[in-house]
Amino acid sequence: MSRIVILPGDGIGPEVAEEARQCLAMLSDHCGLGLTFETHDFGGAAIDAHGVPLPDATLEACRGADAIFLGAVGGPRWDNSPERPEAGLLKLRGALGLFANLRPAGVVAGLEDLSPLRADLATGADILVVRELTGGLYFGEKKLGEDEASDLCVYSRAEVERIAHIAFRAARDRSRRVTSIDKANVLATSKLWRKVVTEVAEQYPDVALDHMYVDAAAMALVTNPRRFDVILTENLFGDILSDELSVIGGSIGLLGSASFGSEGPSMFEPIHGSAPDIAGLDIANPAGAIASAAMLLRQIGQPDLARILARSVEEALVEGNRTADLGGNARCSEFGARVRDHLKRALVRHDAHLELVAMNRGCCG
């Protein structure tokens, strides 16, 4: 049994989170996973209800969960609040020690037409961004005056080492290539970053490492995306580059992510924002949320079901189900329903396969 805490959040967050929840519930019911779901206020919704973006009750629920699922957070409605909704997200990451953010992206076979890049550039692109999540400018000391402001960027050796190990281990399950992104020709933190990553790489002789400045990487992502396998980078660069990378596949609405720490629950969320202009219209793309749910399944020890769910999303897209961001007219709820149709068929095939395996073992035992 696994306890899943859902933070629907703001804007389109509740809509896409619900489609993901229904997929997880279907798998749980069919396969006897014993998943339980509970919903808590977070972000702007929590400001409205409790006056703060991360209420104590929400934080305690998250600490006691097996996994956390976040819809989306933020919006201009809270621009003048004493504390913005996004502050709750930073606090939650810090409180849970979620230092590693994994964002896979690429071009799915059969969906090359979604990419704004030429087919010869986009085809076969498959990249994992490993982003450090609890250091750098986002968490450094901030000063804001009438005529001057500053943001402190700090990284320690230990912070760089732990995220580098995540990237190199991930590369071993892929094409065994890590590209570390920094700005070591200008920034002191990047000089340390490059030095420490190079030292960590010595422990992974089977993984190739190269370094690239962030400006050059930004260009290479749209001119030669296949040169990358695993991208390792710090907080701000990872935020920007992974959003740029989302364009390659056709829409930021397609991508999911996972945030991990050394211990405790992990958090899963689509990388898109809250899109308040389309909230409540049932036209958001839930694919990224459902992809995040697939990553959640892998984390709780269900890799086969994770693959089945991720493949069901791809099949729904390939057969032509497209939401507005992809140039189609499918509703958010309709797309979720199509994914679950594919999921039902896949589960029948999965059950038949398991039955055949069991029969063969019985015959040979």
Rank of each mutant, 00 (worst) to 15 (best):
D151W: 10
G264W: 06
A170F: 14
P14C: 03
E334G: 15
A188Y: 10
M267T: 02
R298V: 02
Q203A: 15
A293S: 14
L35D: 10
W78V: 01
V207F: 06
G301T: 03
P55Q: 05
F42G: 09
M1V: 00
F99M: 04
D210C: 09
E199T: 00
G11M: 13
I271D: 07
S150A: 00
T134Y: 00
A275T: 07
G253C: 06
L297Q: 08
G320D: 00
D215N: 06
I163K: 12
R162K: 11
I283E: 01
D120Q: 04
D79G: 04
P55M: 02
G106S: 04
G44I: 10
A72T: 01
I47T: 00
S175P: 08
G140P: 09
S292D: 01
I271F: 08
S333G: 02
E334M: 14
T223D: 01
V247A: 13
A119F: 12
R118H: 15
S2W: 11
L59I: 03
D351H: 15
L309I: 03
L232Q: 02
F237S: 15
A324G: 10
L117E: 08
P14G: 05
G11L: 14
E159C: 11
R63W: 11
A20D: 11
R103H: 03
T58H: 13
R311C: 07
E202A: 15
A17K: 15
R226L: 09
E263P: 07
L232N: 03
D41T: 06
S251P: 14
Q203C: 05
V16D: 08
